[in-house]
Structures are given as C-alpha cells and as structure tokens.
C-alpha cells in the first residue's frame, strides 16, 4: 500500500472521530440528558484544560500509567519465564498445568479482597492485582508458542548441538515471539483496566480515584476528562506496542491484502 493511500485512511478515521465528537456535543446541547450527568465535549475539555494548567492531570495520569506498566512488566517477566519452562518441558506441563487451569478462570477483581488482607489499601496491592490479572494471556501465549516450535527447528538445534539455554534463547523464544507479543498486547489492556479498578478500590490517587471521587461529587465533566485520558493511554500504549511488534517481527512476510 502506498503512503498516500495510508494518509487517506488516516484522514478518514480522523473524520469519524470528529463526527462522533460533534454528535456528542449535539446530544449534550439538546438537553435530552441532564447536564448533571452528561457534559458536552466543551465542558469535558474545559475540565481537562483546568487540570492541565494546575499540573494535576499529568500527576494523576502518571500514577495510573506507572501502576499499569510496572504491574504489566512484572506479569510479563513471570508469564514468559513460567510459560517458557512449562512450554519446553512436558513434565512441567503435566505437573503445573492443572493448577494453573484452576486459578486462571478466577476473576482478577475477586482477588482484590485477598490482596487487601495481605497488603492493605496500598500501592503494592494494586500492583499485585494488575500483575495477577495480566499474567494469564502472557503465560498462555508463551506456553502455546513454545510448544508449537516446528519439529524441524528442534532437529536443527540437535544437529548443531545447541545446549538447552541456546535452544530457548535462539530458537524457541524467537519462534514463539509472534504469540508472546499477542499476549503482551492483551495483558496490557487488562493491566490498564485493573490499575483503574485498583485505584477505585483503594483511592490511592491516579485516574481511577479521580473518576470515583468525581462521580461521588456529581462532577460529570471531571469524570469524562478522566475517561478521555484513559482512552489516550490505551491509544498511545497500543501504538507503541504495534511499533515494537513491527520491529520484532519485521522478518515476517507482509500479510496479503
């Protein structure tokens, strides 16, 4: 596809966004929904600008992003390491997999009370919640990727007499990378959700607390400003991951259109 065609698509999608914002403004202006509950984009934007000028906006956003990213990173390391161990060893698969299947379906939010008992209403409790919830996609995709390495590559590794570490690092890990990246992306989405949930439970600052407090005080523009910021975080992290994916998977043939 040419860059000109790409640009046209980008413009078209931007137009859709603008149309949605205008529609939102129109609904708000008609007054069908009370101004208490539905602010127009103008008032939400004004709330954003006010917090931007006071510096509060980026502090709150920073807190949420930090929790999301740290929890996600911990989950990634644990998920990939554990997934690799389970993926390469049939023994580990038979021993550990049933336990994992038991824990996996638990809703992460159900873990929150347990986490609070041990860690209190703290930052660490939020991190535990985020890490617990986002580890699963990483773990499962890594197991899948590792156990699906083409048998021929296994033979190549044996013929070249690679040791176990080299087999993991040079063959299995890159072979599983497309799967793992999918898991990382899914995990990041979950991490953002749980960071906000954790902040709403603990009220330890961040966009989650902000939205909760604004809702209790009926400050609808502040709620919407918070939601807009969350949307932006999601958008930016997704773009960053897509760029990472392109870089790491540039060896893959371009998909046919």
């Amino acid at each position: 596809m040419t860059s000109r065609a790409n640009l046209a698509w980008l413009l078209a999608s931007l137009l859709v966004t603008i149309a949605v914002v205008f529609f939102w403004q129109w609904i708000a202006n008609t007054g069908y929904v009370s101004r208490v509950f539905l602010p127009g984009p103008d008032r939400a934007f004004a709330a954003l600008m006010r917090d931007y000028n006071s510096g509060k906006l980026f502090t709150e956003m920073g807190e949420t992003v930090l929790r999301m990213v740290v929890g996600w990173l911990v989950a990634s390391i644990v998920g990939i390491a554990l997934g690799a161990a389970i993926g390469i060893s049939p023994l580990a698969r038979t021993w550990i997999a049933p336990t994992l299947e038991l824990i996996r379906p638990l809703p992460a939010s159900a873990i929150a009370p347990v986490a609070i008992v041990f860690l209190g209403m703290t930052d660490n409790m939020i991190l535990l919640l985020v890490a617990f919830g986002s580890v699963w996609p990483m773990l499962l995709t890594t197991i899948h990727g590792f156990s699906n390495v083409h048998p021929r590559l296994d033979e190549v590794a044996r013929v070249m007499r690679l040791n176990t570490f080299e087999r993991v690092y040079k063959i299995a890990l890159p072979a599983a990378m497309p799967d793992i990246l999918g898991g990382l992306r899914l995990g990041l989405t979950i991490a953002l959700i749980l960071a906000v949930v954790g902040e709403m439970i603990t009220v330890q600052g961040g966009l989650g607390s902000r939205i909760l407090l604004a809702a209790r005080a009926f400050r609808a523009p502040d709620i919407f400003a918070g939601v807009i910021m969350l949307g932006l975080i999601g958008l930016v992290t997704n773009v960053a991951l897509t760029a990472l994916e392109r870089r790491l998977l540039r060896w893959q043939p371009a998909p046919a259109h």
Partner: peptide
C-alpha cells in the same frame, strides 16, 4: 548415539529448517 558436530543435514523443507527471524 547422538548427532555429531561434524555431521550436517540438509533438510528437504528448507523453509522450516531455516530460522525465519534471522537474515
């Protein structure tokens, strides 16, 4: 009993035997 380092194999399915992520 096991592959020797000075015995090489050229597999028929080169696409599977090469590491696609390496140049």
């Amino acid at each position: 009993r096991e592959p020797a380092s000075d015995i090489a194999i050229v597999f028929q399915d080169y696409a599977n035997a090469l590491l696609p992520w390496r140049t």
